[in-house]
Amino acid sequence: MIRNLRELYQFRELLKNLVIKELKLRYKRSVLGFLWTMLNPLMMMIILTIVFSHMMRFDMKNFAIFLLCGLLPWNYFSHSLSMSTMSLISNANLINKVYIPKAVFPLSIIFSNMVNMILSLIPLFILMVFMRIEIQSSVMLIPILLLNLILFTAGISLFISCLNVFFRDFTHMIEIIVTAWFYLTPIIYPMDMIPAKYEMLFKLNPLVYIIGSFREVIFYGRVPSFSFMINSIVVAFVSFFIGYWYFYRNEKQVIYYI
């Protein structure tokens, strides 16, 4: 497994090139180019603010920022998942013709989406300044949170990209799972709205830590408790290692099924 990781490191140039390709293809022939990454969350936020604070009368100050802090990492997670499900299958031609460590395909999606995620944080901070919300020093933790998010998402992406080669109907299942996961995670609602009797159950949801921490440091401006941080780091590493281990064990079979 270590040798495999080292080999992956040797192909970092390819990984970099694939990430560049993903980004280039996404913005090719669009006039606004990379601006879309920043405009998208803004548009979404405007819509959500109107719906939630004017129609559903959700009584909370700066609800838009609150929402965006959860939605941005969530979008990263869900887009990466749905894109990486097909990542091996859509590169079947290449896998059949050239020897490459196959993990580069889901990983290139993880990294190119991360570029977008980081870019979309910019309009969030601009908005906060605009709405006179003080940005606390707790935001210094963001790099760690992003790393957790990458590791967690990469683990699941590696797992499902490989699984989808063996069971092609997994694409459909993942859509259902992702939708359910969205509502089961405090993204459009705050953590303290969860009834006390379900609190224990919610604490089993790893995304509570991975995504919840973003809201803690950006919106509430506080450093999450030690145990909260440890949970989120542990969850991220466990996910990555399980996903990577499964991928590594089954990678060699992929070529016979693709």
């Binding site: 192909f11 390819l14 970099k16 050239v98």
Partner: peptide, 12 residues
Amino acid sequence: ENIYLNGAILGL
């Protein structure tokens, strides 16, 4: 762009 991408695929 393809030269760079495919060069990387071939390990350059």
